[in-house]
Amino acid sequence: MELFRMICMVLASFFGVRKRAAHEADMANVNMVLLPFVAVALALMIGLLIFGAVHLIADVTSSAQGF
């Protein structure tokens, strides 16, 4: 459950949708050793998701032009 809470906290920080009081409450109860690894892993996942979506769209449009 702590890992899920850290994932939610990192995602909320990425998108900026968390109130200050909730952020401060989470920072008081978070494992600071594991937090950077969760943040880097989520950043890589989001980056790969965006890369895959762009690659999928670009691949579909390139074959539609007949080249």
Rank of each mutant, 00 (worst) to 15 (best):
E2K: 13
L3Y: 08
F4S: 11
F4K: 13
F4G: 07
R5F: 11
R5C: 05
M6F: 01
M6G: 00
M6H: 00
I7G: 03
C8H: 09
C8T: 12
C8I: 07
C8E: 13
M9F: 15
M9Y: 15
M9R: 12
V10Y: 04
V10L: 02
L11I: 02
L11R: 02
A12Y: 03
A12P: 02
A12D: 01
A12T: 01
A12M: 03
S13R: 02
F14I: 04
G16F: 01
G16D: 01
V17E: 09
R18A: 09
R18E: 03
R18M: 15
K19P: 05
K19E: 15
K19W: 07
K19D: 15
R20C: 04
R20P: 02
R20L: 01
R20T: 09
A22W: 08
H23M: 15
H23F: 12
H23G: 05
E24P: 01
E24I: 06
E24T: 06
A25L: 12
A25Q: 11
D26Q: 09
D26P: 00
D26E: 14
M27S: 04
M27H: 07
M27D: 06
N29S: 12
N29L: 12
V30C: 08
M32N: 13
M32P: 06
M32Y: 07
M32K: 13
V33G: 02
P36I: 01
P36L: 03
F37I: 05
F37Q: 09
V38D: 00
V38M: 01
A39D: 03
V40A: 07
V40T: 05
V40F: 04
V40D: 04
V40I: 12
A41D: 00
A41C: 06
L42W: 00
A43D: 00
A43H: 00
M45R: 10
M45K: 07
I46F: 09
G47D: 05
L48G: 06
L48S: 05
L49I: 07
L49S: 08
L49C: 13
I50V: 13
I50T: 04
I50D: 06
I50M: 04
F51C: 11
G52Q: 01
A53E: 08
A53I: 11
V54R: 07
H55K: 05
L56M: 08
L56W: 14
L56V: 10
L56D: 10
L56A: 11
I57N: 08
I57D: 02
D59R: 10
V60W: 14
V60D: 13
V60C: 10
T61Y: 14
S62L: 15
S63M: 15
S63Q: 15
A64C: 05
A64E: 04
Q65H: 10
G66M: 05
G66C: 03
G66Q: 02
F67Q: 14
F67M: 14
F67L: 14
F67C: 10
